[in-house]
Amino acid sequence: MNEHSEIRELLTLAAAGALDAAEQGRVEEHLRLCDACRAEFAGWSRLSSTLQELPTPQAPSGLLEQTRRVMERRAAARREHRANHFMLGLLILFAWTVTLLNWPLLRLLNGRLTQWVNISSGQLTAIWAGYILLAWLATVLAAGLLGRSRQQEGRTV
């Protein structure tokens, strides 16, 4: 490719102001000597100017407010999500603590309790197991409800 052809390929970028100093200098040097390239460059320059002067489409007036509302809803949902996670963690911790403390406590009070409520030790153990089962079911139910509520929030935000 000769100098003329090479420069011709650079004219688009030269008109767009996208060449480095060395290339730009080379193009300018050639333009001083070549009428054809000068005319071509003028055409590209006019196209570049026209592009720079294109009217700017204005964003619709309600867009800002609408976007802000969506952002606020999303931020509120995220805060609630964090609070829910924190609460869920606390509940799990509480449930485990109660469960773990339950058995030694029951052992400690076993004799007195059976005398007080007048039931056998086996019945008391069954009641205790039922209580634990109920607590676990309540936890599973709570977690399920919490998950469903999060899914619904995700769909509406």
Binding site: A36, A39, G43, L47, T50, L54
Partner: peptide
């Protein structure tokens, strides 16, 4: 190249057209 045609075009067209 098409310089003349291009210049002619750009002279007669508005920015919306571009």
């Amino acid at each position: 190249s098409g310089v003349d045609a291009l210049e002619q075009l750009l002279a007669q067209e508005r920015a919306e057209w571009v």
